[in-house]
């Protein structure tokens, strides 16, 4: 009974497919042209790099581990810091602010170096074996999580503050405690709002894990660099490296997009 709507829907789908084809064709064209230009100076030896993929896969696992732990720590600590910054107690607020302003204003590269070469060594008793203190994955993920928590906390804070204060009042008026109101009313609404910026930050975290090569953690970027030292195939190695990062970050974007869509099915107003 609604041919117009059906036709309208089909038309949108067709348009989407056409756009995808166009973009792919255009992008592909540019890439091929660029490749031809480079090929005049450089001989691509893709055949030689394929059997290095196992090394990349090992690097991938470490990148995933470092990013995963970093995300977990960043999100949990970020939420705690955000709640501190919104606390009615001035002392908590100040401590939260101190954390955010310190961590956010140190270059992340320097913070990683400081954690691994500074803190881990300083914690070591005089004359003791390096042992556990040399666990690069531990210190790397810790550094990643700690400084990302400062950014993530700001995302949480903005999200929570964007929920009208009257939602908290209504919850408290029905006898909910502050924490119950946060858990059942404020945070679920805030999570919807922060999904897009949070995705951006988590993708940034994955990309920043590449910095961990400075502490010789054998993650993806370190692997590509190391292989490049052994064989003069940098272009090929770094192309593969970029593809590996895309393989991590694009799915995160897609999941975020799906989540957003799911939230919006029933809730049109944010």
């Amino acid at each position: 009974m609604t041919p117009k709507a059906v036709r309208g829907y089909d038309y949108r789908a067709v348009k989407l497919v056409m756009r995808a084809v166009l973009v792919t064709a255009f992008g592909g064209f540019i890439a091929v042209k660029l490749y031809d230009v480079l090929a005049q100076h450089y001989t691509f030896r893709w055949g030689l790099v394929w059997h290095q993929l196992p090394a990349f896969n090992e690097g991938l696992i470490i990148t995933l581990e470092a990013s995963g732990i970093g995300m977990l720590l960043g999100v949990v600590l970020g939420l705690i810091v955000a709640l501190m910054r919104l606390s009615p107690f001035a002392l908590f607020r100040d401590m939260g602010t101190l954390y955010v302003q310190t961590l956010r204003n140190i270059p992340s590269l320097i913070f990683i170096i400081f954690m691994y070469f500074g803190i881990s060594r300083a914690l070591l008793p005089r004359g003791a074996n390096v042992g556990f203190m040399d666990n690069r994955l531990f210190w790397g993920s810790l550094a990643l999580g700690l400084f990302e928590a400062s950014f993530i906390s700001e995302i949480f804070r903005a999200g929570i503050q964007s929920i009208s204060k009257t939602q908290m009042e209504a919850s408290r008026s029905m006898g909910m405690s502050y924490w119950q109101a946060m858990r059942y009313v404020i945070l679920p609404q805030a999570f919807r709002i922060i999904t897009p910026p949070m995705t951006g930050e988590l993708i940034a975290l994955v990309k920043e894990s590449a910095l961990l090569l400075v502490i010789s953690l054998p993650e993806l970027t370190w692997t590509a660099k190391d292989l490049g030292h052994q064989r003069p195939l940098q272009f090929e190695f770094y192309t593969i490296l970029a593809a590996y990062y895309l393989a991590i970050t694009v799915p995160i974007s897609i999941i975020s997009h799906l989540l957003e869509h799911r939230f919006n099915v029933h809730r049109r107003r944010a």
Partner: peptide, 21 residues
Amino acid sequence: NLNRARQQIGIVFQQFNLFLH
């Protein structure tokens, strides 16, 4: 304990304040 006391007191606001999610 206000949380307990408030169970005895219903309040209705001008702007409804329903939980939108």
